[in-house]
């Protein structure tokens, strides 16, 4: 296969970037998208040029590192597939492929196609946990959880923190991600004691990071490689409004 790649190159966070065009031939349809970029990079290094930087690691679709905007779609054209699991057979010879980094004020570019997604970590620092220390916990089977709740919580927990939802959203909103985290704990009995404070703290941090607001376009759901549902966002809204309007946070004295 022959391809023309238009790749965003940007030296660092502060530098201004631009598209650079690369021609590549000898692409096998069995290659993954990242392996195709590996080949391009190897060619660049041979010419003593700097390779294209992109985040990747497990290449099994689970670590959430890879994050490329391919022809205007996060992770490319294939549904429920991360960039690393996208194969070149999804393209045709002669295609021009535009590759951009995730774009959001909360995801500053590190270099070329790699962005800094630590904002997603900070949202979880704010409350994405159950406050339980090591040791002294009850036996695992002391808490029975209805299967439907366990399954629903699991569906939320499958989020890989890749940020495709932010990339896909026209408002660069992180609500699908945050709501998946809020939902997992809101559903499970283990998460109940800090349920409302958690929703408030995580939403507050999300806003501080500069993410946009949700306008319910649902592009996040369509582009999520793990098919996280927007019902999580509805749940987060419930949790948050419940916390803000209905919960009394002070003991009566």
């Amino acid at each position: 296969m022959n391809l023309t790649l238009k790749v965003w190159r940007q030296k660092n966070r502060k530098a201004s970037g631009k598209f650079v065009t690369y021609k590549t031939d000898d692409v096998s349809p069995d290659m993954s998208f990242l392996e195709m970029l590996d080949v391009v990079n190897e060619g660049l290094v041979k010419k003593q040029e700097e390779p294209i930087q992109f985040d990747h690691d497990c290449r099994e679709g689970i670590c959430g590192s890879c994050a490329l905007m391919i022809n205007g779609q996060p992770h490319g054209p294939k549904k429920a597939t991360t960039t690393c699991q996208l194969h070149m057979r999804s393209f045709n010879t002669g295609d021009t492929i535009v590759i951009e980094p995730w774009r959001s004020v909360a995801f500053p570019v590190v270099k070329d196609l790699a962005v800094d997604r630590s904002s997603l970590d900070r949202i979880q620092h704010a409350g994405g946990y159950v406050s339980v220390g090591t040791g002294g916990v009850p036996d695992a089977n002391e808490i029975a959880i209805p299967k439907v709740i366990a399954d629903e919580a699991f569906n939320s927990a499958t989020c890989i923190q890749c940020g495709a939802c932010v990339a896909a959203c026209k408002n660069a909103s992180a609500m699908l991600f945050v709501s998946a985290k809020v939902s997992q704990y809101a559903l499970l009995p283990q998460g109940q004691t800090e349920r409302y404070e958690r929703a408030q703290a995580m939403v507050l941090q999300m806003d501080e990071e500069g993410f946009g607001g949700c306008t319910n376009t649902y592009q996040c759901e369509a582009e999520c490689p793990k098919e996280i549902k927007v019902t999580n966002i509805a749940r987060m809204n419930r949790e948050y409004f419940n916390a803000e309007f209905l919960q009394d946070k002070k003991a009566h004295v």
Partner: peptide, 13 residues
């Protein structure tokens, strides 16, 4: 929230 726009953006979904 998105100061630099995408060169290409699909409305998929």
């Amino acid at each position: 929230a998105r100061p630099v726009a995408y060169a290409q953006k699909s409305g998929n979904g």
